[in-house]
Amino acid sequence: MSNVVDSQRVVSFIRDLYKEQDFIPLHAPIFKGNEAQYVNDTLASTFVSSVGAYVDKFEGAIKKYTNAKGAVATVNGTAALHTALHLAGVSSSDYVITQALTFVATANAINQVGAIPLFVDVCEQTLGLCPISLETYLDEDTFLNEGGECIDKKSGKRVKAILPMHTFGHPCDLDALIMIAKKHNLVVIEDAAESLGSFYKGRHTGTFGDYAAISFNGNKIITTGSGGMVLTRSLEDEKKGRHITTTAKTPHPYEYVHDQVGFNYRLANLNAALGCAQMEKLELLLKSKREIASAYKHFFVDTDYQFVAEPKNCRSNYWLNAIICPDEKSRQQMLEFTNNGNVMTRPVWTLINELPMYADAPCANDLPISQFLSKRLLNLPSSAIVE
């Protein structure tokens, strides 16, 4: 094959991979297990809302799989992020350092607590928050006050947390990020929305920071239809998270007593039942997705398109496979040809700092890698193949 991949050959390869001549989606859920049985169980029990056995069971399954200390099921991943930020003590007008190359929910959750996203660049190797860019900003443009708080020199605002995102399921450079955060007294909240089944040096993503959020949206590796999970490092934080996500209601036989501002974020039993069934075949899905990633990687060898592989010392779930195109023009040509041919591909998200509602949000420094990737990254069909 020549160095420049012909779009028709890409479409043919994907159709052969999926053995499908009709529309091929970017990422579709697979329901070939106990989903119907468990959902019907909830209907028979009449416990279809936020009280029910499957909610607790689903939390337990995620805790066991990730080895997290605590897990709190929420209605979606954004709610999980919002809850994590709230538990972390992020306040109005605080800065939360994150990446501009992410899904908008990352910044929306920061905004939801009244805080301000502050953008630093990403690494080309991980697509996640760059430790060098992060450390440069913190060393040069912040200081610790007498109370040990990290303060931005220019604005005087408190820098409270870093919020790295494991893009497409590929783990960030967690060791470096955690070390830098400790040096500057910052809370670490992992946006692990896309990385269920991804491991960094043998340990599951979402268990390195103080808090983390996972998503179970319909397009994720497993789904509850709509759902999320807060991971915590202590049972005490798990207890607090469960309390505030159930409207902070205190136990009472019949009175409505609430002891603080809370959120109506508890996952419904119906959704949790779906999640329990999906968890039963997570390993099968991961195996398939890694096989698909391997096929893509082999296909794009010796071409001008760089396949995005898992970082060193990591095991990625390859939630969405991606390539880096030679330039913006070649990506646009690939997008148009594949989508016109009923094979769904997608460009990476618009950088958050380029969206109108975040145009005034600060950037700690230049974002050359983020800008480079925003013009060249392209996602390929990544649904698992399960017979």
Rank of each mutant, 00 (worst) to 15 (best):
residue 251 P to H: 09
residue 151 I to E: 00
residue 118 L to C: 11
residue 347 P to T: 10
residue 159 V to E: 00
residue 105 A to M: 15
residue 99 Q to F: 03
residue 76 N to T: 08
residue 148 G to R: 05
residue 351 L to D: 04
residue 368 P to N: 09
residue 330 S to L: 12
residue 213 A to C: 05
residue 334 M to C: 08
residue 13 F to G: 06
residue 145 N to P: 01
residue 29 P to C: 10
residue 105 A to I: 04
residue 288 S to L: 06
residue 326 P to W: 06
residue 65 Y to W: 11
residue 335 L to I: 14
residue 315 R to M: 11
residue 40 N to F: 13
residue 24 I to G: 03
residue 203 R to I: 14
residue 299 F to D: 07
residue 195 S to C: 12
residue 159 V to L: 04
residue 135 E to P: 03
residue 81 L to C: 02
residue 113 V to D: 06
residue 365 N to W: 03
residue 216 F to G: 05
residue 214 I to H: 08
residue 59 E to H: 00
residue 196 L to D: 04
residue 364 A to N: 01
residue 79 A to R: 10
residue 297 K to Q: 15
residue 114 G to Y: 10
residue 277 A to S: 11
residue 262 G to D: 12
residue 348 V to E: 08
residue 219 N to F: 12
residue 241 G to W: 03
residue 218 G to P: 02
residue 374 S to W: 02
residue 189 I to E: 04
residue 181 A to I: 06
residue 187 V to E: 06
residue 101 L to P: 00
residue 49 S to H: 13
residue 11 V to Q: 05
residue 335 L to T: 09
residue 154 K to M: 10
residue 191 D to Q: 10
residue 140 E to R: 13
residue 120 V to E: 07
residue 152 D to S: 01
residue 175 D to S: 12
residue 356 P to G: 11
residue 353 N to R: 07
residue 250 T to Q: 11
residue 88 A to S: 14
residue 160 K to D: 04
residue 294 S to T: 14
residue 257 V to D: 13
residue 130 C to G: 07
residue 348 V to C: 15
residue 57 K to M: 15
residue 61 A to C: 10
residue 192 A to L: 03
residue 18 Y to Q: 08
residue 125 Q to I: 07
residue 8 Q to C: 07
residue 63 K to V: 08
residue 156 G to E: 05
residue 62 I to N: 02
residue 12 S to K: 15
residue 74 T to E: 09
residue 67 N to S: 15
residue 49 S to G: 13
residue 46 T to L: 14
residue 86 H to W: 14
residue 69 K to V: 14
residue 265 Y to E: 01
residue 353 N to T: 13
residue 329 K to C: 09
residue 133 S to W: 02
residue 243 H to Y: 10
residue 345 T to M: 12
residue 382 S to V: 04
residue 16 D to F: 00
residue 310 E to C: 13
residue 44 A to P: 04
residue 237 D to C: 07
residue 78 T to I: 11
residue 199 F to V: 06
residue 183 K to F: 08
residue 112 Q to E: 13
residue 106 T to M: 12
residue 80 A to C: 06
residue 115 A to L: 12
residue 151 I to Y: 00
residue 378 L to Q: 00
residue 180 I to R: 04
residue 144 L to M: 11
residue 162 I to D: 02
residue 148 G to D: 07
residue 241 G to M: 03
residue 170 H to K: 07
residue 42 T to N: 13
residue 351 L to H: 05
residue 277 A to W: 01
residue 32 K to Y: 10
residue 249 K to T: 13
residue 252 H to N: 15
residue 9 R to P: 00
residue 27 H to Y: 11
residue 187 V to C: 14
residue 387 E to P: 13
residue 79 A to S: 11
residue 181 A to C: 08
residue 184 H to P: 06
residue 133 S to E: 08
residue 174 L to W: 06
residue 204 H to A: 14
residue 172 C to D: 00
residue 15 R to F: 05
residue 60 G to V: 10
residue 243 H to I: 02
residue 296 Y to D: 04
residue 276 C to G: 07
residue 68 A to L: 06
residue 151 I to C: 04
residue 355 L to C: 13
residue 84 A to G: 14
residue 133 S to R: 05
residue 385 I to Q: 07
residue 285 L to G: 03
residue 165 M to A: 14
residue 318 Y to Q: 01
residue 83 T to P: 00
residue 225 G to H: 01
